[in-house]
């Protein structure tokens, strides 16, 4: 990390990309028939990329910024709580799995996606004091796996094909 301003610029770019992906996800949401809470998790493409190219700190930083900014731009306070819980658990799981190096980026992405959903639902169960949401947990685990595979494949492509010159 020789050039500090280069690093800042690069991470800023990644944050912006994550935000755009979150926005795209919001736009295509009505096109896909779904139950509330089902999300592709497109911004996770960037997080996976950073996790493999830059390391834990960058991934964590951009992930946190992304959650805060997305909630401020498109959500509300309640959404922020769910997002933070989901994002934090997802990040934790992905950092751990990355370090253990058991899985491919696709596997890490799947685990992260499922963890995101689990974090959100558990938070909702606690806040609403209802076990009703257990059904969501089952459905969102399956959809989380599918979305995680797609996101992971995109992330892998970036990890592989983005010129390594960009690795400041």
């Amino acid at each position: 990390m020789k050039n500090r301003s280069q690093t800042v610029a690069f991470l800023g770019l990644c944050t912006a990309l994550a935000l755009i992906l979150a926005y795209v996800e919001l736009l295509i949401q009505p096109l896909i028939p779904s139950i509330p809470g089902i999300k592709m998790g497109l911004p996770n493409i960037i997080i996976i990329f950073l996790l493999y190219r830059r390391g834990a700190a960058s991934a964590a930083g951009v992930s946190l910024l992304r959650v805060l900014l997305v909630s401020m731009l498109f959500g509300n306070a309640m959404a922020l709580i769910y997002s933070l819980a989901g994002g934090a658990l997802s990040l934790l799981v992905m950092l751990l799995l990355r370090r253990l190096n058991w899985l491919s980026p696709v596997g890490v992405s799947v685990a992260g996606g499922v963890a995101h959903n689990v974090g959100q639902i558990l938070t909702a169960m606690l806040l609403l004091e209802t076990a009703e949401l257990g059904y969501y947990l089952v459905v969102l685990t399956v959809t989380g796996i599918i979305a995680g595979v797609l996101v992971g494949l995109c992330g892998s492509l970036l990890v592989k094909h983005v010129p390594s010159k960009l690795r400041f």
Binding site: V106, G107, V159
Partner: peptide
Amino acid sequence: GISKVHLRNDVVMIILL
């Protein structure tokens, strides 16, 4: 860029989930 061991572990994890 994806090793076979990783791929196998991926599949195992997904099945477990």
